[in-house]
Design a protein around this nucleic acid. Structure first.
Lengths: 127, 127
DNA sequence: TGATTATATAAGCAGATGGTTATATACTAG
DNA sequence: CTAGTATATAACCATCTGCTTATATAATCA
């Protein structure tokens, strides 16, 4: 595909408020589907479908851990530098993740697996 | 509108091959509708509708001269810096304009008005 | 003035998009 | 194994998109 066509197809995907916010959130974090569902107040299939599109063009990758699927930015994508240039112009969305944590809705798969922490046994949220 | 929403709406417009190429062409030039029609091999209404969308969000402005309407990038747009960051990652499309010139299809309104040149009297193309 | 050229707008249509609900799949925990 | 939780997929639907053709508007020119 010509560079201008590939760029257009990526920009089209980024040209949706939900997906653009997802990408900004993933700029500094890893999120799983149920966190996005909580954050956007949308149905789980709607979230999955957005993530599918991002995954299909290779903008994000997934990491299945425990019963969750965590998504993260694919920094090896051809157009990642362009994507990052755009994301860097956007205001941080971190406060949304902080709010999730305060609401006890943030997923912490690591503490469950007991690989990286000693606390949170018996719960499936991180804080 | 929230910054992330405004950015998404601009990216959506840029997420079309024709409009993205138009913007890249306008990065270093001014073009009129009939030049775009020639360049893209599309109907004149289709071109006008793309330009209308770009104009509606303020990404381009128009300059009516002689019987033509010339479009150019609006560098004062809020998101112009973001747009320029994206365009700068794209390969130049200048050769398309050169081809137009070779084909004698490039419009030169200035020489017609006789404001900036002494040649080309009686023709409506620049070379 | 009337013909020509350039552009814009309107209406219609096929295909894409983004959501929904229902259901399938996969993993965990008891 | 069974129930519960997380995710994906399928089917459906309303709206949006981008094109087309037809027509309107505007400027130039003979």
């Amino acid at each position: 595909m010509l560079p201008i066509e590939e760029t257009a197809s990526i920009l089209k995907l980024m040209g949706d408020k939900t997906r653009l916010t997802m990408l900004k959130l993933l700029e500094g974090d890893t999120c799983c589907v149920c966190e996005f569902v909580e954050l956007f107040g949308m149905s789980q299939p709607a979230i999955s479908q957005h993530l599918r599109k991002l995954k299909d063009v290779g903008l994000v990758k997934e990491d299945k851990r425990h019963q969750w699927v965590f998504y993260y930015l694919n920094e090896d994508h051809d157009l990642y530098p362009m994507v990052e240039r755009v994301l860097s112009t956007l205001p941080s969305q971190q406060e949304k993740l902080l709010q999730l944590t305060e609401d006890g809705k943030r997923i912490d798969c690591c503490s469950i697996k007991g690989e990286n922490s000693q606390d949170d046994k018996g719960t499936n949220v991180r804080d």
